[in-house]
Design a protein around this nucleic acid. Structure first.
Length: 275
DNA sequence: CGGACAACCTGGCGGC
DNA sequence: TGCCGCCAGGTTGTCC
């Protein structure tokens, strides 16, 4: 679920409550959630390390420790937050990993579908090394986007979802960016005009930036680090709005299957001949 | 290289 | 209410 804007929002919420804290160890009731190293080594190594920074790379939460990096990928339903650890009434049934902190609190990783993973590594590029550029990075230009796009030839929606092409775009924001650019999701990347490519560069960034400004889209499981919802779901143009009128032209929105993902678009605004 | 599909998992929802 | 099938913000591996 969480895409770049949601992960960025979680990171911003965690930063003030986590930086400076010391991790005391590792508790886990679902060993597969710990990708690497082994549970034993993970617990030994993480114990006593202070949190120096909380950052984001694509959809990974990157927690810089004194000697290692703790990476977390939320996948579809993961949540990461700090909470008191002495609660008798446990509201969250899906906590599978806990990192006790100083001061009777703990960093929790909760994940109902159990797809999410945590990693501990001294070299995070071993995990994030194949990821494409950050679409919101200052240094990421329209020219670079166009250049990278022209090296590939596949359906544009599938390309936007490809994390080695652009890092951080997921199903919601891919649909939103394509709608804003008035590009049909099945268009082959080689068939895009230069003008469409430039527009898409802008709309990808705008859709993501708006998502961050609204603190993420709480369509289902996503919550901010403090447990509250974002508001981006209330201002989406097409995602989750099949059958409802297009906010621009009023035509009923359609939902189809593209790259094995539910794909929402306006058949009028995003027709193949719509340019 | 690209596309299709299965896996990994559980929960929520609509239909009957 | 209960059961069933379908769907879900992601990624990875396999096969063609």
């Amino acid at each position: 679920m969480p895409e770049l804007p949601e992960v960025e929002t979680v990171v911003r919420g965690l930063r003030p409550v986590l930086v400076g804290r010391t991790l005391q160890g590792l508790w886990c009731d679902w060993p597969r959630a710990v990708h690497s190293p082994s549970l034993e080594e993970f617990a030994d190594r993480v114990r006593g390390q202070r949190v120096l920074a909380v950052e984001r790379r694509a959809k990974y939460i990157v927690i810089q420790l004194e000697h290692d990096y703790l990476l977390v990928h939320l996948k579809m339903t993961g949540r990461l937050y700090v909470s008191p650890c002495d609660r008798v009434q446990e509201a969250d049934r899906w906590v599978h990993v806990r990192f006790p902190l100083d001061g009777a609190e703990e960093l929790r990783f909760s994940d109902s579908r159990k797809f999410g993973r945590v990693y501990l590594t001294s070299n995070p590029t071993r995990i994030t090394g194949d990821l494409g550029p950050e679409p919101l990075a200052e240094a990421f230009s329209a020219a670079e986007f166009a250049q990278r796009l022209k090296l590939r030839d596949k359906g544009i929606k599938a390309l936007l979802l490809d994390q080695t092409f652009i890092a951080g775009v997921g199903n919601i924001y891919a649909d939103e960016a394509l709608f804003r650019a008035r590009i049909h999701p099945l268009t082959r990347s080689r068939d895009l005009t230069d003008a469409q490519i430039t527009t898409l560069y802008e709309t990808v960034r705008a859709a993501l930036a708006d998502g961050i400004a609204r603190e993420g889209a709480s369509v289902n499981w996503y919550r901010k680090a403090d447990g509250s919802r974002g508001s981006a779901q209330d201002s989406l143009f097409v995602y989750g709005r099949a059958g409802q009128p297009c906010r621009v032209c009023g035509t009923p929105l359609q939902k189809i299957r593209v790259a094995q993902r539910g794909t929402h678009f306006c058949p009028s605004c995003q027709s193949f001949e719509g340019v």
